[in-house]
């Protein structure tokens, strides 16, 4: 399953204290910002490969991003006004 983000928010709900909650909120913001920017794409690619082609060795992270950017070079996405 790929929607399991809530796990990355960390400590359980009952964890009390304003400090804990602030840390959790900060972690959630960090998770969100990183995910929107695409930082987790490589992890997800590795997980995807492990799931669909077990045994296949994933390409290293630098290689993965090279391929991603090469693909974007060939097929650009629009940005709106």
């Amino acid at each position: 399953m790929s929607g399991g983000s809530s796990g990355s928010v960390g400590s359980p709900v009952w964890a009390g204290g304003a400090m804990r909650r602030a840390v959790r909120a900060a972690r959630a913001v960090r998770w969100y910002a990183a995910s929107v920017l695409g930082e987790r794409d490589y992890e997800r690619y590795v997980a995807h490969l492990a799931r669909t082609h077990p045994g296949e060795v994933p390409v290293p992270v630098a290689q993965y991003w090279r391929e991603r950017h090469a693909a974007a070079d060939r097929q650009p996405g629009a940005r709106c006004c």
């Binding site: 790929s2 929607g3 983000s5 995910s35 794409d41 997800r44 690619y45 995807h48 490969l49 669909t52 993965y64 391929e67 991603r68 693909a71 097929q75």
Partner: peptide, 10 residues
């Protein structure tokens, strides 16, 4: 899904 442009996303 190919780990690149097709990628189920939260």
């Amino acid at each position: 899904e190919n780990g690149h442009d097709f990628l189920p996303t939260d």
